[in-house]
Design a protein around this nucleic acid. Structure first.
Lengths: 181, 181
DNA sequence: GTCCTGACTATGTCAAACCAGAGCCAGGCG
DNA sequence: CGCCTGGCTCTGGTTTGACATAGTCAGGAC
């Protein structure tokens, strides 16, 4: 069943994973877990609006173009999942309101959303690209999403190796949440 | 309605976008377009399997854990959208079959899927991280997804500037001399 | 007080996503 | 020739996502 498949797969499965009859990514896969949280259209669009700076309930609903019922539901879920936090605030002379602000967890999803956006720019729009251009505020160059390794090499997509996590091995250097910004 | 919002937004809206009452990302947004293609759980999981090297109909259904009806539907959609190609092949001594292989368009979605996976590893699993480790085949270091600019700088998430694309905005704000920000 | 606005909640409906199980067709094998 | 396997399609049903409309509730403005 797996004759020429390995050659042309994007990633290379190693360390016992190569026998695809022997395992399934089902259940514990991080992609599935992520999709359980932000796997709906409206959830990702809520995050998009949050990145653009939207904080208030009505604005989310209006700017995304979803009903208030859906906005309420989605915001509640995202707060519960930890991507957003809800807290009261008050503008001078106004009553207290609730606003929804990004947490570190929510901010760190941005690369995934950006990657999706860049892909859409490239393949799903006309030759002019997408409607928005993202630039590095420091230098003005366009922003891109790159796959690379921690040694700093750019990693071509066909040079990715996948191995089972060394769960039994003493913990590799792990960034303790929240400093990536 | 936009008082203190700009300060704490992740990205900075520029070039006329700052007035959020005046525009909406609705409709032309590349994120929305991308979601129209891979916005379902099963679509992204099909892509995941394709990255792992899966090519055959039954294997997609079995390894993802979706019904064959859904697999058939999703594969047809992804072929139609251009992420996969279907072509016949035959193993020696076997009858001809169809296989589904990634196109460039499909391969280029990998960074988005990887970013999602890394995020899931980080925030949705225990301290040991996700079940799979991705490494650069060349050097063995773990793979990560980075946001950076074309000049090569790493771009902290709060240093992203967003401007209307000079080509794609029909009315309103002109940004004449290249990139402002 | 009454009004008005922002932030929701409630109700009822429709479509899409998914599942389980049965059926169907092509073609190599015995 | 009939069997079996791979690769689907069909039927029928549930769950989830979304919409539109209407209602509630708190609290500053008047």
């Amino acid at each position: 069943m797996s004759h020429r498949q390995e050659q042309e797969a994007v990633a290379t499965l190693t360390g016992g994973l190569a026998d695809r009859e022997a395992w399934s990514a089902q259940g514990q896969c991080s992609i599935e877990r992520a999709l359980a949280v932000v796997g709906t259209r409206s959830a990702l669009l809520v995050m998009r609006e949050a990145y653009y700076g939207t904080r208030r309930f009505d604005d989310f609903a209006k700017r995304i173009g979803i009903s208030e019922a859906v906005a309420a539901l989605r915001l509640r879920e995202l707060v519960h999942a930890g991507l957003l936090e809800r807290h009261p605030y008050r503008e001078p002379g106004q009553r207290t309101r609730d606003e929804y602000v990004l947490t570190a967890m929510g901010r760190d999803l941005l690369p995934a959303v950006l990657a999706l956006m860049r892909w859409g720019d490239h393949y799903l729009t006309g030759p002019s690209g997408g409607p928005l251009v993202l630039t590095h505020a420091g230098c003005g160059s366009p922003v891109e999403v790159a796959v690379r390794c921690e040694s700093g090499h750019d990693v071509p997509l066909n040079e990715i190796g996948i191995a089972p996590s060394p769960a039994a091995v003493p913990s590799a250097p792990r960034v303790p949440t929240g400093d990536v910004v």
